[in-house]
């Protein structure tokens, strides 16, 4: 998979998340109606995007630095990641409800809400570990720095901060645009019409992504030319 495809997928996921009412635009419409201010609408979606970025960076950055500093090949992560994604997807199919503690977050704590929402309910950071691993593999192929070097860790860290920024910008654009259109044009009547339950679909996307990671890891010649997907063999 080329870098373009991977980035395309990252942006698409960001757009999709931005269209989810719970990830910002719904609260932004509420703020807009209460304050009668377009600035409040955009500020609200921006705080949600900031929370989402925090959640992503909190997971991706340590993972990238760890891989960068050690001799671990990114491909090593794929099968484990596949299993984790499938597990998370199945869990969300079984229990689609939000974790209870999320309902105790105050309406004005938007950054905290969207950060914890992304971490504990949506699982976007987990999902984006796959694209991160793929991009790291591509970097390893193009730049021939030694494994476990500081410069490799630095490059991976930058990547781990850029990836969520790309996804976050896509999320922010989709959420802001939706909020603006609903607030300015359609009003609240649109809300119940366009709000569709995608919990099941989202859970299936996880299972599918997980299966994809497993397939990539298992395919001979794929995943950086590794013959087997057994991680113990490959990290030697």
């Amino acid at each position: 998979m080329g870098a373009d495809t991977i980035w395309g997928m990252i942006l698409a996921m960001g757009l999709y998340q931005g269209l989810n009412p719970t990830m910002g635009w719904l609260a932004a419409v509420g703020r807009g109606l209460e304050t009668r201010s377009g600035r409040a609408v955009l500020l609200s979606t921006a705080t949600y995007a900031a929370g989402h970025y925090c959640a992503m960076a909190a997971v991706l950055l340590p993972a990238a630095v760890f891989v960068g500093l050690t001799a671990v090949r990114p491909a090593t992560l794929l099968p484990w990641l596949g299993v984790a994604l499938i597990g998370f997807g199945l869990f969300k199919l079984y229990r689609p409800a939000h974790p209870r503690f999320l309902t105790r977050i105050r309406p004005n704590q938007r950054v905290r809400f969207s950060c914890l929402m992304a971490l504990c309910h949506c699982g976007s950071p987990l999902m984006m570990l796959g694209p991160l691993a793929s991009l790291m593999m591509l970097l390893d192929m193009t730049a021939h720095t030694g494994h476990g070097s500081a410069s490799r860790a630095l490059r991976f860290a930058l990547l781990a901060l850029t990836l969520p920024a790309g996804m976050g910008l896509a999320l922010l654009s989709a959420a802001s645009l939706t909020a603006w259109i609903v607030w300015r044009r359609f009003g609240l009547t649109a809300l119940t019409r366009i709000w569709v339950n995608l919990d099941g679909l989202w859970a299936l996307v996880f299972v599918l992504m997980g299966a994809m990671q497993l397939a990539m890891a298992a395919a001979p010649g794929a995943a950086g030319g590794m013959p087997s997907w057994i991680p113990a063999l490959r990290s030697r």
């Binding site: 009412p21 719970t22 719904l26 609260a27 509420g30 939000h98 977050i105 309406p107 709000w195 339950n197």
Partner: peptide, 10 residues
Amino acid sequence: ALCPMTGHPF
């Protein structure tokens, strides 16, 4: 249930 952070809209 339609409140932005309520978590059980459906």
